[in-house]
Simulated assay, not measured.
Amino acid sequence: MHTQLLGIDWGTSNRRAYLVGRDGKCLARHADDQGMLAVGGDFAGSLAALRASMGVGAAIPVVMSGMVGSASGWQEVPYLDTGVPLTALPAHLAPVAGHPGCFIVPGYCTRDGAVDVMRGEETQLLGAAGRGLSDGWVVLPGTHSKWVFLRGGRVDQLVTYMTGELFAMLAAGGTLAALMAGGPDDASAFAAGLQEARRARPLSNALFGVRARVVSKTMAAAQARSFVSGLLIGTEFVAAQGHADSAIDIIASPALSARYERAAEHYGMPARAHDPDEVYLAALAHFFERL
């Protein structure tokens, strides 16, 4: 019987690893920028280097989630249908061919109306469900922000917004890049962006309005970055209103969670924040039953 497990949240750009005991206690952790794009396809070599840096022996099993299971990852793992409950994830772990003791957690795909997918967030949701969040809306902000409605421990609805990616692209190049290059976190500009999202204008029109506000001297250029952040996050909440108008649970880093909590307050949605490391560790405890 294995007494330890190495869990890895292996995303596109970043990677987080946790060595846990069967009691759920975290024995060691590691974070780096060796995501899917950085390893150049050498996932086995990258994992071996990670084990060495953490002092984790080759006999300790590994459970990986995230983009490591995508078509561009180590091994493509088919999506599960949302009818499969979160608690059944351990039974669906996919062994990595040629690497005994290494497993990948499958993601979910919903095909009810609009098609949507997730990889990685399902593991956090498993941990959240194990901590009592079996029903209601859970928001997982990030590069691709996920709004997930859990019903009886199953993924009942899934909606993804490219909020983080779009914000990064706007800041990196194009019409708004120079305006978004600097400026402190401005709470009033963020709130103004949230309010602008309420107008429900087409997003491309609302984004051009940021430039119009600055060149017309209606808004200071230093406020543009926070305004755009509020506008993009607000777009999620406007889309959610009408079907997610009750309390929401947010799983995100403290800084990002704080932004979504401010947005939730603005839109009259009670919000509870959860630490992503804690829910991930809670999920890892479930996988011991498969090992």
Rank of each mutant, 00 (worst) to 15 (best):
Y108C: 00
M67A: 14
D33V: 07
S53I: 01
R29I: 02
T82F: 03
V77A: 13
V77L: 10
V77I: 13
A48V: 15
P100S: 07
R29P: 11
R111D: 09
C109N: 03
M64Q: 08
A44F: 05
M64C: 15
A38D: 04
V115I: 14
G101R: 05
V56N: 12
V96L: 08
L47A: 13
G45F: 08
G40S: 01
G57A: 14
A49K: 08
M67P: 10
A71I: 00
A71V: 08
P78H: 02
G41C: 00
G45T: 00
G21H: 03
H30I: 03
V115M: 07
G35R: 00
A88G: 11
G57C: 11
V115N: 08
D42L: 01
L80F: 10
D32P: 05
V68F: 11
G41K: 00
F103E: 04
V96R: 06
H92E: 10
M54P: 13
A58Y: 04
A97H: 08
H99Q: 09
P61W: 01
H92F: 07
A59T: 12
D116Y: 14
F43I: 04
P106A: 05
G113S: 06
V77K: 04
P95E: 08
G35T: 06
A52I: 00
E76R: 10
